[in-house]
Design a protein around this nucleic acid. Structure first.
Lengths: 190, 190
DNA sequence: ACCCTAACAGTCTAAATAGACTATATGGCG
DNA sequence: CGCCATATAGTCTATTTAGACTGTTAGGGT
């Protein structure tokens, strides 16, 4: 029995999707997964249904009706309410205005980079940079083909952002690897 | 009753701290909070105790003993085991090698930037950039004074990383704001 | 000397999450 | 034509997590 999941990153995502069109949770999930093939990949079914239920209780979304295709389970279609539309804008505004320190696994790992020793660090970092480069190339291609297919830039702006950060991270890693190799970054003798 | 919290970002952090010295959870928390004044700020007491208990069950850490200062609650001091040391290295290595798509609130918000309209977007983004700049300046200062106090660069490497990303984000925001103002990024007419 | 606040150390519970489980339908392949 | 893998939709439970709650002690002000 779900209660109030009103502060999690899925909230704006769901409201945003519903801004475009009414939808049922399963479809939203497919949409989210496919759209940013992977960014939203961490989303689980349970969490999504839970969030939508909480949104419904809060009045940001409302049941628009039930649908049924063949003898499949019934789908409950939700639509954004006016309150939901306002809430979405409030959230987006606040989440953009306030930079939060959300930190990633990589950040946590880098904090104890020392434990890998110079050689281990160079090896691991080099592999990461390599993988990042591959991923970046793939993302660039996807972005380009989306644009070519006529997607307005505004609709793919988050991909540009992600690319920008990925490039910065790659450059940083390269510089650290370099510094270890040249001796500009050394391991303190214990 | 805690069970097995073996995959969360606190795990490497705790093991990393214990690599330096044996400690009790309350102290670890203080250390984490102070060390990266804010990055780790999201950590809650409950979660930490839970994680340490799980680590103990897994055998990565072991109880070193009980301490008591005056009539305060007893503190349970934990130390890293050999298995824990190996695990730490395994984790660090894997978390560095595999770039994961962990995405932030800002990323989620940018995805629906359109909903703010051009003016709202410019305003919100401008404020974020401003705040980022202030924070970056403060972080740079803290980093500089840590170095001046004799901290080896390796020990503050994660601060360099965070700064690098923050600068990239700021630059990206500036460029987007510019593009909106000059008309290089437009809102599709609905 | 006495009071108030902040630091200390930990436990406990309500809410949130991941992911297993249920059940039907479709499409491809042997 | 029957069988298996996958897609559709959703529910349910066991972990996890956030953060409120408990109680003690040191320090500062009056």
């Amino acid at each position: 029995m779900p209660r109030r999941t009103l502060d999690n990153p899925l909230v704006p995502a769901v409201l945003g999707l519903l801004l475009e069109q009414a939808s049922h949770p399963y479809q939203m999930l497919a949409e989210l997964r496919q759209r940013s093939d992977s960014h939203a990949a961490a989303i689980t079914r349970g969490t999504l249904y839970n969030t939508v239920a909480a949104l419904n209780e809060a009045g940001w979304v409302a049941v628009q009706g039930q649908q049924r295709a063949g003898n499949r389970p019934e789908r409950t279609v939700y639509a954004l309410t006016d309150a939901g539309r306002e809430e979405l804008v409030r959230r987006l505004d606040s989440e953009i205005r306030n930079p939060e320190r959300e930190f990633t696994r990589f950040f946590g790992a880098v904090t104890y980079l020392g434990a890998l020793g110079p050689d281990g660090a160079v090896e691991a970092l080099t592999e990461r940079a390599q993988r990042l480069r591959e991923r970046t190339a793939a993302d660039e291609e996807r972005l380009a083909s989306a644009r070519a297919a006529g997607a307005p830039r505004l609709f793919v702006i988050e991909a540009e952002y992600a690319l920008c950060l990925a490039r910065a991270e790659t450059a940083w890693i390269d510089s650290v690897v370099d510094d270890i190799r040249t001796g500009a970054l050394t391991w303190p003798t214990p």
